[in-house]
Design a binder for these strands. Structure first.
Length: 557
RNA sequence: CGGGGCGUAGCUCAGCCUGGUGGAGCGCCGCGUUUGGGACGCGGAGGUCGCCGGUUCAAGUCCGGCCGCCCCGACCA
């Protein structure tokens, strides 16, 4: 591609409202432009990156037996009514000219299950794996960070159909293997995490996370352990407790926070028990107890309760337990739930009386439930955890009969008996892979693409103007490289050299070749690897440049 | 949905408080000089000041309403 002909509107300054690095750089480099909130156009160079990602995905899903098709974005709302998902806030709803209720699909379980329900009749038709790359529409409450969270985006979605759970399990595992190959091939740093199933339904779920500063989730990492902070568990930091033998009341005026109390008593925060009063959705008031240095993980608590909850109000606390800031489990008439990290004690707790705490409290033996948030300093199998922000770049769900049941997707088994089809669904967001790659590898100068998804492998800069010998040599090299099948962006413009260098670094192709007067005279082209901006020793001789460039590319990340 | 901020040239912004001939830098076009890190000179084009209404002799500026966009939180398969 000749730069002079390329539609690549670069900007010297980032958009005023951009915050995330990938947002700034992708706009500056001319890869994407915003049309409205959460609505983005992909320009030619950006679309090349997107296409490279989708092609990697396509090959790997084909490799596990996937068959590509295309399902509609606009769908009858009735279909969604049947699965109970037509009232989701994020779902765009609209009417056609006749007043018929429609929705814009945020995912395609309904459409594909409808299709399969009508077309699959016999156990002989199974298993099947269908997938597509299709636009998903989501009325996000808050789109953000460029293309990281948008209202319209392309997703690779595959859907597996099997006779039973065993078959579905096979396809689920096949996807885990394919996903590992896909993310490895993109060149990203990534993790497979256990995750919450959310409103997707089904049982088990894994999500695929790319660590990056603009990430919206937090991932807990320790050795081979990786889990979304929403569901992560770890061993708490051990701590030395005082050797209080009996329960004694202590006077603690004004010490209503863990910090104040720990400071006042000269104890570590973990020697205190924090009381978190909640009201479960059935109206029960409960006291959740956890170590003073720990915090409640709302999602884990909700999953443990099997119900939603809210923090109790000060009035509710005062009426049933004690004065806020001084409440504890001793002698109260409400259900008490102890976190798994609470040991034998002794601990300091609120005395349920103003300005009073109790030392030497030993919690009763009994059930413990892990409902705390993993903290820095925790360990998993002895390995300290790291908590890093990450962006979700894919997920897989075991749907089982969540959709086949409401939509009547069944088949006849060997004995002629009607059976429900077991499903799985598997998503990947190529745009997020693009943005995560920018986030992970960019430096002060700009983007540094992994080779597998770079818009072009090579960025050839001609420093000479038209008519000069060095321009003629660059033209020749461009032709040779193309002839050899190298993807090359050729900067053939008559602009300043500094501008060419700066733009090449902003755009981030893995290898830069520079051909100026020097090269024309010496017969050697200068070559610089974008990642780390390291010059290639000795450059690349013009004579067998294509072969040499190809072998250099092989070695690049 | 709660909180905060912003809307003036293609981009980044000043001008608004204190109403009176719409500006800068970059980019763009032309000419010339330059040419290994966003170079320089001269000339030029480009604006319904987000929209609607009000106040006023006069509104980019003051007032009201609306729309749009960003950030934090809530929310988010």
């Amino acid at each position: 591609m000749r730069r002079s002909a390329l539609f690549l509107p670069t900007e010297r300054q980032p958009p005023a409202d951009a915050e995330a690095l990938s947002h700034k750089l992708m706009v500056r480099a001319g890869l994407v432009r915003q049309l409205g909130s959460g609505l983005w156009s992909w320009l030619p160079a950006g679309w090349r990156v997107h296409q490279k990602v989708t092609q990697i995905i396509r090959k790997e899903i084909d490799g596990i037996g996937g068959q590509e098709l295309l399902l509609p974005v606009m769908q009858p709302r009735e279909l969604w009514r049947r699965t109970g998902r037509d009232t989701i806030d994020e779902l765009f709803k609209l009417q056609d000219r006749k007043g018929a209720e429609m929705v814009l699909a945020m995912t395609h379980e309904e459409a594909v299950t409808f299709l399969v329900a009508a077309a699959v009749k016999s156990y002989r038709d199974l298993p099947k794996l269908l997938y597509h790359f299709q636009v998903k529409e989501r009325d996000e409450p808050r789109p953000r960070a460029g293309v990281l969270r948008t209202r319209e985006f392309i997703m690779k979605a595959s859907y597996s159909f099997d006779r039973d759970a065993a078959g579905r399990e096979e396809q689920y595992e096949a996807h885990r293997r394919a996903y590992a190959r896909i993310y490895d091939r993109t060149g990203l740093e990534w993790f497979e995490c256990e995750s919450d199933v959310g409103m997707m339904g089904g049982t088990v779920a894994h999500e695929y996370m790319a660590p990056c500063p603009a990430g919206e989730d937090d991932v807990v990492l320790a050795g081979s352990y990786a889990a979304n902070l929403e569901v992560a568990s770890a061993d708490p930091q051990p701590l030395a407790l005082p050797d209080d033998r009996e329960l004694i009341e202590v006077h603690t005026p004004g010490q209503t926070t863990v910090q104040q109390l720990a400071g006042g008593l000269g104890l570590p925060a973990g020697a205190l028990l924090k009381a978190f009063p909640i009201v479960v959705d059935d109206g029960r008031l409960m006291l959740v107890m956890l170590r003073g240095d720990h915090r409640v993980n709302d999602i884990k608590l909700q999953n443990a309760l099997g119900a939603t909850f809210r923090p109790a109000t000060t009035e509710e606390i005062a009426a049933r337990i004690g004065p806020a800031g001084y409440i504890g489990p001793h002698g109260v008439d409400v259900e008490v739930l102890y976190d798994a990290a609470v040991g034998e004690g002794p601990y300091v707790i609120g005395a349920n009386a103003p300005d009073r705490h109790l030392r030497g409290f030993r919690p009763p033996a009994g059930p413990r439930i892990d409902i705390r948030r993993v903290e820095e300093g925790d360990t998993v199998n002895g390995v300290p955890v790291r908590i890093v922000p990450a962006i979700e770049i894919g997920n897989i769900f075991k749907l089982n009969t969540r959709y086949s049941e409401p939509l009547g997707a069944t088949y006849l088994d060997e004995s002629g008996k009607e059976q429900l089809i077991f499903m799985g669904s598997y998503g990947i967001g190529p745009a997020r892979i693009c943005a995560a790659a920018v986030e992970q590898f960019a430096d002060e100068q700009g983007i540094s693409w992994p080779r597998a998804i770079a818009p072009w492998e090579v960025n050839l800069l001609s420093l000479g103007k038209g008519g000069t010998p060095e321009r003629a040599a660059a033209d020749g090299l461009y032709a040779d490289l193309r002839g050899a099948g190298v993807e090359v962006l050729y900067d053939d413009r008559d602009t300043g050299n500094g501008e060419k260098f700066a733009e090449a670094e902003l755009l981030g192709c893995p290898l830069r070749l520079t051909l100026g007067k020097r090269s024309a005279e010496s017969g050697v082209v200068e070559a610089q690897v974008r990642r780390g901006r390291t010059d290639l020793d000795g450059g690349v001789p013009l004579q067998d440049a294509p072969a040499r460039v190809k072998s250099v590319l092989e070695t690049l990340p």
